[in-house]
Amino acid sequence: MIYARRWAQTWLAIGILWFVMAIALAPSNKLYQQGLVLFLWLPTLVLLWSARGVLAEQWRTQRALCIAMGLLLLWSGLSLTWASGEDAGREFKRLVYIGLFLLFFPLLASAGFARLIRLLQWAGIGLGIAALISIVHFYGVQAHSWRVRLEGIGEISHPVLGAYVIAAAIVWMLHWPPQQRWFQLLWALSLLSMGAFLLLCQSRGATLGLLITMLAMPLWCRDRKSCFIALSALAAAVLAFTLMYALILARGSSYRPEIFQSSLQLISLHPWTGLGMGSFYTVPALGMTFDHSHNMFTHIAIELGIPGLLLWMAVWFGVLREIWRVRSSTYGKGLMGLWLFSTLAMQFDAASLTDTPRAEWFISWLPVGLSMALVWMHARRPGCDKISGSI
Rank of each mutant, 00 (worst) to 15 (best):
M1K: 07
M1G: 05
A4Y: 06
T10E: 08
I14L: 11
N29L: 14
L31M: 10
G35A: 06
L38G: 03
L42P: 08
P43H: 05
L48H: 11
S50Q: 09
V54G: 00
Q62P: 10
M69P: 00
L73N: 10
G77R: 02
L78K: 04
S84N: 14
E86S: 15
R90I: 06
L102N: 01
F104V: 13
L119R: 11
L127W: 01
S134I: 12
Q142S: 08
E155A: 15
S157R: 13
A169L: 08
W176P: 09
W176N: 08
Q184S: 12
S190F: 00
L191Q: 05
S193F: 01
G195A: 03
L198H: 03
C201Y: 04
A206D: 06
L208G: 11
P218L: 14
P218G: 14
C221V: 14
F228S: 12
L234W: 10
L234S: 07
A237E: 06
Y245K: 13
I248P: 05
L249T: 15
R251D: 12
G252L: 06
G274K: 04
M277G: 06
M277S: 13
M288D: 07
H292G: 09
F297T: 12
F297D: 06
L304S: 11
I306Y: 04
A314P: 08
A314Y: 06
V315S: 00
G318A: 02
V319D: 00
R321L: 10
R321T: 10
R325A: 15
S328P: 00
G334L: 02
G334F: 02
F348L: 11
G369R: 08
M372F: 12
D385G: 07
